[in-house]
Design a protein around this nucleic acid. Structure first.
Lengths: 194, 194
DNA sequence: GCAGGCGCTGACCGATCGGTCAGAATAATC
DNA sequence: GATTATTCTGACCGATCGGTCAGCGCCTGC
């Protein structure tokens, strides 16, 4: 007999299911381009039911994004601890690419729709975190060239992850993508002279 | 007396004005996030008036995007003529960055909202053109690594141009941006071995 | 059995969406 | 000045938007 969960641990967490489906649809069709009705239909519930689990569309959006943003924040804090230990640069790049890959839907949303949705707190916070990457990683005031290299690396990586050719990334070539991304991001993010 | 235009050449082309305003708003708030009412208000006309000049919202969107897409197509044709003349690589990169800068709103829309709006003919055509860049520029079948480098370059550049820090790109540092973009795009797009 | 809470839903709300249409206002033609 | 196009607009349309609410079914604890 499998250990029965003593406290409430619904084997099918409806809220989590909705968050997952919503995140996917927000990434694919945009926040304004996705209606609660569409999310409800995709999940097999009624619109009212979605609004029973989440106060509003914006609340659903924020909760769907929150875990990824939290992990990004955690990642940044761990980076600051290590400071700029020099040779950990390569490790940072690999970890960062893995973070992006793990949260590619959220990353895609923040990068592509970030400016549009900057009045949503979680999105705004995420954008601030991205700025922190630049500040902490590049010594002192970043030059225009450095800012552009970082921007190209972030937006480019986010785009490639979701838009990679036809549809969803196939599992068998994800390692190839990962390797190529680490390569190109590392190249862009390494602070060159000037 | 300045030469009076013999045929109708309205000194203030309302349709062009609407296209311009609409393009800006579509880029900033997304296609689905921008309503005809908002465009009309921004232009100082009524919604009915906008629909007098354009058959539909989608038609306005397509016409606002069309000139940029046409110029991209022209650019690609001129590239094919030159074939791969080798040393013109640098020239290509500079021309390409200039093209992106000249049409940065349209580029931003196509890159960021392209997959969402791929059912709109002009957008779909533009995405096809972008694919052509990859095919024509990289010899034979592009490897995963090459495709990713191109994707990063395109999406990254498009992002930087519109999202470049606070708001609209200031005129005085546009040369600096241009230079940095040419540098980074050139670096990414140059087909390395493997 | 039954009371009560939880998950869920349909009906409904005001607002706004893209779009139509008849007609007012303006400009051009004779 | 009268006629005719050309712009432009308010009123209106059905559909959909995000969101509210009363209540239905169902499981649980007594």
């Amino acid at each position: 007999m499998p250990t029965p969960q003593p406290i409430t641990r619904p084997q099918t967490d409806v809220a989590a299911e909705l968050r997952s489906i919503a995140l996917e649809m927000f990434a694919e069709h945009g926040y304004t381009g996705t209606s609660l009705q569409q999310i409800a239909d995709a999940a097999g519930y009624s619109k009212s039911s979605v609004l029973y689990h989440f106060r509003s569309k914006e609340a659903l959006f924020e909760e769907a994004l929150a875990p990824s943003v939290a992990e990004l924040e955690e990642f940044l804090d761990s980076i600051v601890e290590k400071a700029t230990s020099g040779d950990s640069r390569a490790q940072f790049t690999a970890d960062f690419v893995d973070l992006l890959l793990d949260h590619r839907l959220a990353a895609h949303i923040i990068i592509n729709q970030g400016q549009t949705l900057s009045d949503i707190p979680t999105v705004d916070r995420a954008r601030g975190l991205i700025d922190r990457i630049g500040e902490s990683f590049m010594s002192g005031l970043p030059t225009t060239k450095q800012r552009i290299r970082l921007g190209v690396a972030l937006a480019g990586a986010a785009y490639v992850m979701v838009a990679s050719r036809p549809s969803a990334t196939e599992i068998d070539d994800i390692d190839e993508v990962r390797e190529a991304l680490i390569d190109v991001v590392g190249e862009l993010i390494t602070p060159l002279s000037n």
